[in-house]
Design a protein around this nucleic acid. Structure first.
Lengths: 116, 116
DNA sequence: CACATAGTTCGACTATGCTGGAAATATGGA
DNA sequence: TCCATATTTCCAGCATAGTCGAACTATGTG
């Protein structure tokens, strides 16, 4: 997963899908938005998909891609556990982010964007 | 950073350094622990260092390497912001990790490291 | 059925990253 | 000074990943 995201174009794709949420984004729209060739986009989508970071569903002639939140959460959990175990001072600022200071919990809790 | 960590050996190195904490680990000890050749270890340490994930200090004839917690926190913050904005349901399980269920927040929270 | 649109797969080329041996540099000790 | 230890740098050689054009497959429409 880390190596899948360790690639400028793929990270951009994934971020786009995360922002899009449960609606997902069609491959063509991704290509247009990020200004990449459809075939290399397809290759990158394949890598992300194989890493478990995204899923897809056919809809008409488009194929819609979605970020796989569970995988993302799992990866972050892995990283958080490792960093917290050895370095408590890393956690505090992160807790602050999660704990509604900025954007997350406050934005997360009420609206409940995607019913999964 | 993501691509630096997206490499089995480098991730192992980084995890080792995170666990070691402020004491750091000498290059030779890393090589012995992870059973890698010193020259390829050096190359990987270089990549991690260039990514800002680790630092080093000479101590006698050894060179001690340390995880750079700030960089790690920055990276996690970046990932958390992105995922939380679009995907509230990712946050909950992570908050649980940070919030003292296991290991972290209980150790983190009281000390209040950064006033932001 | 023919055609247009949406994506993917294939194949060749290029580039970049990784590995491992050997030599070089730096430090400390006899 | 000479030697041992610790680590890095240099230099092939190899493998893998990325890119791009072109052909292929699938779906919907007239």
């Amino acid at each position: 997963m880390l190596s899948a995201l360790g690639h400028e174009a793929r990270l951009a794709i994934f971020r786009l899908l995360v922002k899009a949420g449960a609606e997902g984004v069609a491959a063509g729209d991704i290509a247009r938005t990020l200004n990449v060739l459809p075939n290399s986009l397809s290759a990158n989508l394949n890598v992300l998909s194989h890493a478990g970071l995204i899923t897809s569903r056919r809809e008409g002639r488009s194929i819609i891609y979605f970020a796989e939140y569970g995988a993302m959460a799992g990866m972050l959990e892995f990283l958080l556990r490792d960093c917290c175990n050895g370095a408590p001072e890393v956690c505090a600022p992160l807790s602050a982010i999660l704990d509604g200071t900025d954007n997350c919990a406050s934005a997360c809790a009420p609206s409940a964007v995607s019913p999964q």
